[in-house]
């Protein structure tokens, strides 16, 4: 048990790195397959045997997981364990990374999303993503939010588009801060505001599945609470996968929780069970703060 605490410390001296290698092996030795039920009855997305390689390095090892309809799935795990990588597989954003190779079966409503004749444009309109790093377009706040509806032709008129922009910004609880300066550049906002702008931009398209990669990492508790409210509300009609480093957040917003470790899906379960009664030792170590 003590060895994990050591590994968790940042490598301030060289001795720590040499100690780490056997620890990784020790941790992997404890992994024998995902604990808990990865499948649900009414799956929106269903992943089976997903392997992801960056060049020669494998980032995701044989992961099976379902995202249920109108379910909020939290993905937690130590930094570098592959949460973002897995999330980006779900709408094929990894296609943009040349060295990245995805194998396995991933389906949306029963259709394989990596199939040859799968239209990625349509897929990404259905499966939206909020990236880990806020990346607003260097355009006006209005244009940032309006871009998705514009390219998909979701608004018939200017007033309808105005409406979508306003609603999206309101739901991302950014409206009150930017209502009077919609023409200012989105890149001129603060880090947290940019994060909410990116959320507004994604939900403006009303995708069926929303992938959120640490959407609250730069937000204060009040803004965080508002985003969590938004996730709660969206979760009634949409499928949401959210990556977070905050246990409390995962516990508050999600229906189920998946714990990733070194590219493996260690444990999946109903959120309450995971946090009150984790089965796997790695999960327990992580959520009790002995690792990560």
């Amino acid at each position: 048990m003590n060895s994990f605490t050591d590994a968790a410390l940042p490598a301030t001296d060289s001795t720590a790195t040499t100690k780490e290698a056997p620890d990784l092996d020790a941790q992997l030795a404890k992994f024998t397959g995902t604990v808990g039920n990865v499948r649900v009855d009414n799956a929106k997305m269903s992943m089976t045997g997903v392997d992801v390689h960056y060049g020669d390095a494998q980032a995701i090892h044989n992961v099976d997981l379902d995202l249920g309809k109108n379910e909020v799935m939290a993905m937690i795990g130590p930094s570098g364990c592959g949460k973002s990588t897995f999330l980006r597989c779900l709408n094929r954003m990894n296609d943009t990374i040349e060295s990245c190779k995805v194998a396995g079966s991933l389906t949306l409503d029963g259709e394989d999303i990596y199939e040859r004749n799968q239209d990625v444009v349509l897929l990404r309109a259905r499966v939206g993503i909020v990236f880990q790093k806020p990346n607003p377009f260097p355009k006006s706040i209005y244009d940032n939010v309006a871009y998705g509806p514009r390219i998909h032709g979701l608004a018939a008129s200017k007033s309808e588009l105005d409406d979508i922009v306003e609603q999206s910004l309101k739901r991302a609880s950014l409206w009150s801060e930017v209502a009077d300066r919609l023409d200012n550049p989105g890149t001129g906002l603060s880090g947290g505001q940019q994060q909410r702008l990116c959320i507004a931009r994604t939900i403006a398209v009303s995708p069926e599945v929303i992938l959120m990669d640490e959407p609250c990492s730069a937000l204060d508790p009040i803004a965080t609470a508002k985003i969590e409210e938004l996730i709660d509300e969206l979760g009634k009609n949409y499928t949401i996968a959210i990556v977070t480093h905050s246990m409390q957040q995962a516990a508050r917003v999600s229906d189920r929780t998946a714990y990733f470790h070194l590219g493996r899906l260690v444990e999946v379960g109903v959120t309450n069970d995971i946090f009150t009664n984790p089965t796997h030792q790695l999960t327990e170590n992580y959520i009790t703060g002995r690792f990560g």
């Binding site: 954003m93 943009t96 990404r124 309109a125 939206g128 990236f131 377009f137 994604t202 398209v205």
Partner: peptide, 10 residues
């Protein structure tokens, strides 16, 4: 990341 943002929106 700019191109990613656009691609991510479809």
């Amino acid at each position: 990341s700019i191109a990613d943002a656009a691609l991510g929106l479809g």
